[in-house]
């Protein structure tokens, strides 16, 4: 309780009542989601909790786990010390290391993802988006974002991505090209975007349901990599047909 108070949690112990038999505490929902949102597992989802009048009912063990998360964030925040300036010799070394890191990282990702696009390795969500758009049907904004960023990240050229959208009734070449290039990090903020993770796709109704590989990954790109590996072991000489 003391620690919780330190973090200004709105937490109160509750007396056992017939309806709240197994709970020890009631915690304000904002304090709850701030800490529980990143803990994995269905039982931590707010949807699966008892929530009434803004309070989530919890056991002692659960409250302790949430406090751990709060403390972890607190420490991490403390560690984020802003360094004002470093001597040029150190900055140079950092830059050199950064460069090396990016070079190496670039290499590994190239090794993992083949240059050609393997459609059979698409996760179900991408497969559905791809089919929908190819038949000229409308897909939601977030659907377009997911499909585009996925394809860019598995190495499809911006040209080919733009072509995919060509069959839409409201296709505008200039606009589409700009947006695809923007997401590829070639325009504007120069950030190469990646698709949202599975959890987010579920929230926005993009996830059509899970298959076996889905159950073992949390991100559509991870699905693609995993599926490619299984394809490789199944058919070692498979070429990108």
């Amino acid at each position: 309780m003391k620690i919780a108070n330190n973090f200004k949690w709105k937490l109160r112990p509750i007396q056992p009542q017939p309806k709240l038999l197994n709970y020890d505490f009631a915690l304000d929902f904002t304090d709850y989601i701030r800490n529980a949102a990143i803990i994995q597992g269905k039982k931590w989802k707010l949807t699966n909790k008892s929530l009434a009048k803004g309070e989530v009912f919890l056991t002692k063990v659960e409250v302790c786990r949430l406090l751990e998360e709060e403390v972890r964030r607190y420490i991490e925040q403390k560690l984020q010390v802003k360094v004002k300036s470093l001597s040029p010799s150190i900055t140079n070394r950092i830059n050199r290391l950064k460069q090396l890191f990016y070079e190496k990282r670039g290499k590994t990702s190239w090794e993992e993802i083949p240059s050609e696009v393997i459609i059979v390795a698409y996760p179900p969500c991408i497969k559905r988006l791809h089919e929908t758009i190819s038949s000229g049907h409308h897909i939601s904004h977030i659907g377009r974002f997911t499909l585009t960023t996925f394809l860019i990240n598995i190495g499809m050229s911006t040209e080919n991505v733009v072509d995919l959208f060509r069959s839409l009734a409201d296709f505008n070449e200039r606009m589409t090209r700009y947006q695809v290039e923007h997401l590829a990090g070639l325009k504007g903020s120069r950030i190469k975007y990646i698709p949202p993770k599975c959890d987010t796709l579920r929230t926005h109704g993009v996830c059509p349901g899970l298959d076996d590989i889905c159950r073992r990954v949390r991100h559509p790109l991870a699905y693609y990599r995993k599926k490619l590996r299984t394809l490789k072991t199944e058919a070692p000489v498979a070429s990108g047909a």
């Binding site: 529980a36 949102a37 990143i38 269905k42 989802k45 929530l51 579920r202 929230t203």
Partner: peptide, 17 residues
């Protein structure tokens, strides 16, 4: 945004077991 997503999932009943 992550916390708000939890609120959304609650309202829409996503991930409900």
């Amino acid at each position: 945004s992550i916390s708000r997503k939890e609120i959304v999932d609650y309202i829409v009943g996503i991930g409900l077991e």
